[in-house]
Each structure stands twice: as C-alpha cells, then as structure tokens.
C-alpha cells in the first residue's frame, strides 16, 4: 500500500446470486479527496460502496484502510471489533434516505452525540456544546438542538446526517446519493457545505451519485461503473469532457444541459 493512500482496494468482488454486484474492483483513495462513483441503477456502485464501508462482506479481493496514525487495517481478514471501532471513529456514512442514517425518534442533539457517547464521552454538558457547535457548522439553527429530526426539512436532515458523522472527525465519509432526495436549490447548499468541510477537515469522500453535475462540481476524481465493473476512471473534468469508454460517452451525452 502506498503510504499516502487512505483506502486500497484490490480485485474486490461482491456478487449476488443473480450475477449483479461489483467485480474485480481496483481502487485507491487519497486523503482529502472527493471521489464519485457514477453509473446507472444496477451498475454495482452502491454495492461497491456498501462493501467498502463494511456493510457487505466481499467474496474475494483485498481491502485495506490507513488510519490517522498511519496504521494499516486489513478490513476483510482483520477482526470485526476493530472494524466497528474504525467505522465509529474514522468513518462516516451518509445515506440517501435520512431515515437510514438518523435516529428519527431522538433529538438532533442526541443524534449528533451518539458517536461521541459510543467512544466513551460521558459529560452531558460537553456533549451538548459539541452538538450545538456542529449544528452551527452545518447551518442549522442551534435552537433546534432538542427538536426531533422528523420536524426538519429534507435538506436539514441531510445536513444533520453530516453533523452526526463528522462530530468524531472521521477521515473518510461514504455517501450514497446524498442529494438524491433534495430539491435542486437545496442541493447547491448541501454541495457547498460538503466542499467546505472537505477543505476544513481534510476529509476523503467516496460518493455514489447518478448525477454527473454533482460529480462535476464536487469530485476530484470520477469512477464510471457498468455491469459491476469499473469501465473508466480519471480526473472528473477529463472524464466528463473527454470520455473514452462508449458507456461513459453515452452517460455524458445524456446530460440535460442547463
């Protein structure tokens, strides 16, 4: 593993009984980098994301993660306790549907504090102070600290997911179609927030999206998937302006120009 990669994926496969899934994936992710996985439904991009995030067990291949201290972790053969610890501390996961990523029956403050409590923080006052701080950072009025996420708008719920994940200062965040359910006007705000947090925190983000416009504005690199395989990858502007693979050309030519 190169000393500067945060995630190293080699020949990784996770296939379903029907033959769909992702196969023989090679991928490197670098600290502070936003990488978008694009492709149509069924291309295997979400399966790949879930497999990388430890939510699915790959059938073959290797997957390694380097933590902040520079220690490498074998995420497939390593022990589950460590992986869960990493998932809590070093990773975040933002889902398309906020219901999958938030606890809807507890307050925003409790949502943000959960990871801190899982890591052993036991001071209510400090937890609240951090939660309030994070609400501000994701542009939610701190007065909403004790409100239930159900009372939030879709855009606020996505931002709350971000806060809930970033509170433990992770180095890698997985995002699955985070803007999928958002109005276009709200999308822009979300993208701007993500871009700013990437700058401020040196986050690496692995984002699944079918929206090439999102990739254009946010991603350093873009990976194109079809039928479970990576068919093309490179700098985002190169992929979008000079696509090489027939499928990428089809995707790019299908964008409705604003």
């Amino acid at each position: 593993m190169r000393s500067d990669t945060i995630l190293e994926v080699r020949q990784l496969s996770h296939l379903y009984a029907n033959g769909q899934g992702c196969r023989q994936i090679d991928l490197d992710l670098y600290p502070g980098e936003v990488l978008c996985l694009v492709g149509e439904s069924g291309s295997g991009k979400s399966t790949l994301l879930d497999t990388l995030a430890g939510r699915r067990v790959p059938q073959s291949g290797s997957l390694r993660f380097r933590d902040r201290q520079g220690t490498f972790h074998d995420l497939i053969h390593g022990d589950t306790a460590t992986r869960r610890q990493l998932a809590r501390r070093e990773w975040g996961h933002v889902f398309q549907n906020p219901r999958d990523g938030l606890r809807m029956n507890v307050s925003a403050g409790a949502n943000i504090s959960e990871r801190l409590m899982a890591l052993g923080q036991r001071h209510y006052g400090h937890l609240r102070a951090q939660a309030r701080d994070w609400l501000e950072r994701v542009e939610i009025d701190p007065a909403r600290l004790d409100d239930l996420p159900a009372s939030f708008s879709g855009g606020m719920q996505q931002r709350l997911q971000i806060a809930r994940n970033l509170v433990t200062a992770p180095s890698l965040v997985f995002m699955d179609e985070p803007t999928g359910g958002l109005d276009v006007s709200v999308q822009a705000r979300f993208l701007d927030l993500v871009r700013r947090l990437v700058h401020e925190h040196g986050l690496a983000i692995l984002m699944v999206t079918h929206d090439l416009g999102v990739a254009r504005l946010l991603a350093h690199r873009t990976v194109v998937m079809q039928h479970g395989r990576i068919v093309e990858s490179g700098l985002t502007d190169q992929i979008l302006d000079d696509p090489q693979h027939a499928y990428t050309q089809l995707l790019v030519s299908s964008i409705v120009q604003a």
């Binding site: 409790a110 959960e114 990871r115 409590m117 890591l119």
Partner: peptide, 8 residues
C-alpha cells in the same frame, strides 16, 4: 453508546 442516547 445507544443506551446513553436514551439517558441524554
């Protein structure tokens, strides 16, 4: 952590 969520 979840249990403390309830107490929180």
């Amino acid at each position: 952590g979840l249990m403390h969520v309830k107490l929180y």
